[in-house]
């Protein structure tokens, strides 16, 4: 479904990604792991169009999306969450999800101004759908809250809901467990599995291997911008390069 081909990314003289190659199969939960600073988020930024790679290509469902702007990539069916939460704090939870549904709306400015039936039915239908999405992450009772008033864990869930609202085929989740305690992390991983069962392909970034070993079918390991291993969790765990990256070399 997603093919990342030989991505190279330089920031000035610094090469942060050096020939990264991996594939995400449809329906999978794919893990992208690596120590801090390995370049994982940069991969997501390139796939979602926020950064342009220096070289290499990103293929999504057979189409080259490498240099498309972020909104066009969203329209292709890729959505994401951010490591440092980026919800719209002053807007309500419902409005956050409705922004996620932006491209599902089609009424014109004239329909807005004259309050035409098309606008009213669309708003009503999609507001109901937005409530359904909020209930997926158990936030429906707080739909009118300003998003900034949510707890940290709640904001992470809202970000997930907002990403789902774009009706993506592929969901990129950037360190969902960052800043969460073990119980919250486990709950969130359960939710990711639930979302996957609904038919969404998911790619998760994590630096703590233990967190996603249990839920991913396939894992790629990045270290200093290079792909050092790829395979099933069992294979990756035994790979000497991975052990070295995480634990250091034996003396």
């Amino acid at each position: 479904m997603l093919k990342v081909q030989n991505i190279i990314k330089d920031f000035g003289g610094l090469r942060v990604l050096d020939g990264v190659v991996f594939q995400v199969a449809e329906g999978a939960i794919f893990g992208l792991i690596g120590p801090n600073g390995a370049g994982k988020t940069t991969v997501f930024n390139i796939v979602s169009g926020l950064l342009q790679p220096t070289d290499g290509r990103v293929i999504f469902n057979g189409a080259d999306i490498t240099r498309l702007p972020p909104h066009a990539i969203a329209a292709q069916g890729i959505s994401r969450t951010f490591q440092n939460i980026r919800i719209f704090g002053e807007m309500s939870l419902l409005e956050n999800v409705l922004v996620g549904m932006h491209r599902l709306f089609s009424y014109s400015p004239a329909a807005m101004f004259f309050d035409l039936p098309k606008k009213r039915t669309e708003e009503k239908l999609l507001r109901e759908k937005a409530c359904d999405i909020l209930s997926l992450v158990n936030l429906e009772d707080k739909a009118d809250w300003a998003a900034k008033n949510l707890s940290y864990g709640g904001q992470r869930k809202l970000e997930l809901a907002r990403a789902l609202a774009t009706d993506p085929k592929l969901l990129l989740v950037d360190e969902p467990a960052a800043g969460m305690n073990p119980a919250e992390t486990e709950e969130l991983m359960d939710e990711i599995v639930q979302i996957n069962r609904r038919g969404y392909t998911i790619c998760v970034i994590e630096h703590d291997m233990k967190v996603i070993m249990g839920i991913c079918g396939q894992i790629a390991v990045l270290n200093f911008g290079e792909l050092i291993a790829e395979g099933s969790p069992e294979e990756v765990k035994r790979n000497p390069l991975v052990i070295e990256a995480y634990l250091g070399k034996e003396g």
């Binding site: 169009g49 702007p69 909104h71 969203a74 719209f88 409705l98 922004v99």
Partner: peptide, 23 residues
């Protein structure tokens, strides 16, 4: 209360996140 107003507000709050939402 329209999709256009929400898009402007989202851009105001976080342009990067708004673009990823397809705006």
């Amino acid at each position: 209360s329209s999709r256009f107003g929400r898009a402007l507000e989202a851009i105001n709050e976080d342009e990067t996140a708004a673009s990823v939402m397809g705006i």
